[in-house]
Computed example of a mutant assay.
Amino acid sequence: MGPHEAARRIADLNGHELSYVANKHSSIVLLNEAVEDLVTAHARLDISQAWGDRPQ
């Protein structure tokens, strides 16, 4: 779903505003940092430690 389609479902917001926010607040660098944060958080979970780092 693109910004214009999403804006049709959000009152008082248009596609240009959504597109601007998306372009202003996201980048490849920020997405990579978010992925790294998620992977690190997942590695801290008990279940991740029980699985180990490779299949047996």
Rank of each mutant, 00 (worst) to 15 (best):
I10N: 00
S26D: 07
G15P: 05
I10Y: 03
Y20I: 04
I47G: 05
W51T: 08
E33K: 12
Q56V: 05
L18E: 02
S26V: 10
V39K: 08
D37F: 06
S27F: 08
R9S: 01
S19F: 02
P55Y: 10
A6L: 15
R54E: 12
L31Q: 07
D46W: 05
D53G: 11
A6M: 13
G15S: 03
E36Y: 07
A50S: 11
K24C: 02
H16R: 14
V21T: 06
L38G: 13
D46K: 04
A50L: 14
Q49W: 06
M1S: 12
E33V: 03
S19L: 07
L18I: 04
A11G: 04
W51V: 09
R8V: 07
G15Q: 01
L38H: 09
W51A: 12
R54K: 15
E17Q: 15
N32Q: 15
S27R: 01
P3C: 12
V21R: 04
S48G: 04
A6R: 00
P3W: 02
R44L: 07
T40N: 15
I10P: 00
D53I: 07
A43H: 11
Y20N: 08
G52D: 02
R8L: 15
N14W: 03
Q49C: 07
L18H: 03
D53C: 09
A43R: 14
S48V: 07
V29S: 11
R44C: 04
L30N: 08
A11H: 00
D37A: 11
Q56Y: 06
R54Q: 13
A22V: 05
D46I: 02
I10E: 05
Y20K: 12
E5T: 10
E5Q: 15
N32S: 13
Q49G: 04
L45N: 10
S27N: 09
L31N: 08
D12H: 01
H42A: 15
Y20W: 11
D37L: 06
R54S: 12
E36V: 05
E33S: 09
L18Y: 01
L18K: 00
A22G: 03
A6Q: 05
L18A: 01
A6H: 00
N32A: 14
A7L: 03
H42T: 14
R8T: 10
I47K: 09
V29E: 14
E17T: 12
V39I: 15
P55V: 09
Y20F: 13
R44D: 02
V39A: 11
D37V: 05
Q56M: 05
G2T: 04
A43N: 12
R8P: 00
A41K: 15
E33Y: 02
V21H: 02
D46C: 01
A22R: 07
P3A: 10
P55R: 09
A43Q: 13
V21A: 07
R44I: 03
I47C: 08
S19G: 10
N14E: 04
A34Y: 12
I10A: 05
T40M: 11
N23V: 01
E17M: 12
L30A: 11
Q56W: 08
K24D: 00
N23K: 10
A41W: 09
V21I: 15
D53F: 08
D46N: 06
A41Q: 14
L18R: 02
H25F: 14
E17P: 00
Y20S: 11
